[in-house]
């Protein structure tokens, strides 16, 4: 154990501790707690029963009070560790509670009622994961629909994003034509026009096209991303033009050059864009909230926010659904984090 501590505390270069080292480790460990703590707490809470969720102070792990079936009673009764008036300790089941007095029975001898002050008893608890928090939304709510809608929007939008933007990037990086700079500037200028600025007219256009309350109305406005064109173009500029000349000599059509030469060679940049697009589309909220007003079309994000905004919030379901919503992003994070961080550091996009 002390070996481990020594290893962890050892400093590179073997120098002594400086006050900045202490600040560093306080910051890092505090960061670990603040950054991961909330998500961990969420996941832990999502396995608690509604009763456990309502408790204060809350328990760290999901506990429920153990129950026993006692002869002569229809329902299972809560089990308590009680101190009897004569000082003996016993495990009893509570029949009912009147004021501060609890009427209890010994599960072995169900005939005899024992009265115990409620201060003299503590519930017998056991760990239990409330899996129905997860299973019920899948069966009783439209959750599966929301999940499907989100997956559909994410996958379709990402595919279209990749195709449409790579084609444009190809044209803008490998062809000389009038207005190329203009097109490039136009695309870059849209970086200045976020959704929040154009949502009113965009909504009317989407409605006019009959895409209101339609998943395509969520998908289409997002697919021509300037950042997508930009990173793909930057990457394609590094592909030597001689390869395209060679392909032309090889009787390849321009379309073939695009999909048999350029696309495969742009794979790393396409992968980065695909990852970003998946995260963006999965997380989109404001626009789907505007376009989708029919329940069966909600995406996960919209569905979750609407459920959580209801008066009678069913936290046990919300928490579980939030965890499910987090899963794809967490997977992306675990497996592709390196890809994303280098992508951001390189291009400054989000």
């Amino acid at each position: 154990m002390s070996r481990v501590a020594e290893f962890l505390l050892r400093r590179k270069g073997g120098k002594g501790w400086h006050w900045t080292d202490i600040v560093t480790w306080i910051w890092l460990l505090g960061g670990l707690f603040v950054m991961f703590g909330p998500a961990v707490w969420l996941v832990g809470s999502s396995f608690k029963s509604p009763a456990a969720l309502a408790e204060f102070p809350p328990s760290i792990l999901p506990y429920v009070t153990q129950k026993v079936t006692v002869e002569g009673y229809d329902k299972p009764l809560d089990l308590y560790e009680a101190t009897l008036p004569d000082g003996r300790k016993a495990t009893l089941a509570e029949v009912r509670r009147i004021g501060i007095v609890s009427q209890m029975v010994d599960p072995q001898k169900p005939g005899e009622i024992i009265k115990v002050n409620i201060g003299q008893r503590t519930p017998v608890r056991q760990m239990s994961f409330a899996m129905q928090n997860y299973s019920e939304p899948f069966t009783h709510f439209d959750f599966v629909r929301y999940l499907w809608n989100s997956v559909f929007v994410t996958v379709t939008a990402t595919l279209i994003t990749l195709v449409v933007n790579s084609m444009a990037a190809f044209a803008l990086s490998k062809y000389e034509f009038r207005g190329r700079t203009f097109a490039m500037l136009l695309i870059l200028a849209t970086l200045m026009v976020p959704l929040s600025v154009i949502m009113v007219p965009l909504y009317s256009i989407v409605s006019a096209l009959g895409l209101f309350n339609n998943l395509w109305g969520v998908i289409l406005p997002t697919v021509a991303t300037p950042t997508g064109v930009f990173i793909l173009r930057q990457y394609m500029l590094t592909i030597p033009d001689e390869l395209i000349d060679a392909a032309r000599m090889d009787k390849a059509s321009e379309w073939q050059i695009y999909w048999r030469i350029i696309l495969p060679l742009t794979a790393p940049a396409l992968a980065v864009l695909a990852i970003f697009s998946v995260v963006w589309r999965w997380n989109d909220f404001l626009w789907p909230l505007i376009v989708l007003s029919r329940k069966e079309l909600y995406t996960l994000q919209v569905g979750l926010s609407i459920y959580s905004g209801e008066l009678n919030v069913q936290w046990h379901f919300i928490l579980a659904m939030t965890v499910v919503t987090m899963i794809p992003v967490v997977l992306v994070f675990i497996f592709l984090q390196r890809f994303i961080t280098t992508g951001i550091a390189g291009t400054g996009l989000k």
Binding site: P240, E242, L243, D245, A246, M249, L265, A267
Partner: peptide, 13 residues
């Protein structure tokens, strides 16, 4: 016609 380029321009993939 066929051409051989200075950089060879072989399709890397």
């Amino acid at each position: 016609l066929a051409m051989v380029f200075q950089s060879y321009a072989l399709y890397p993939h």
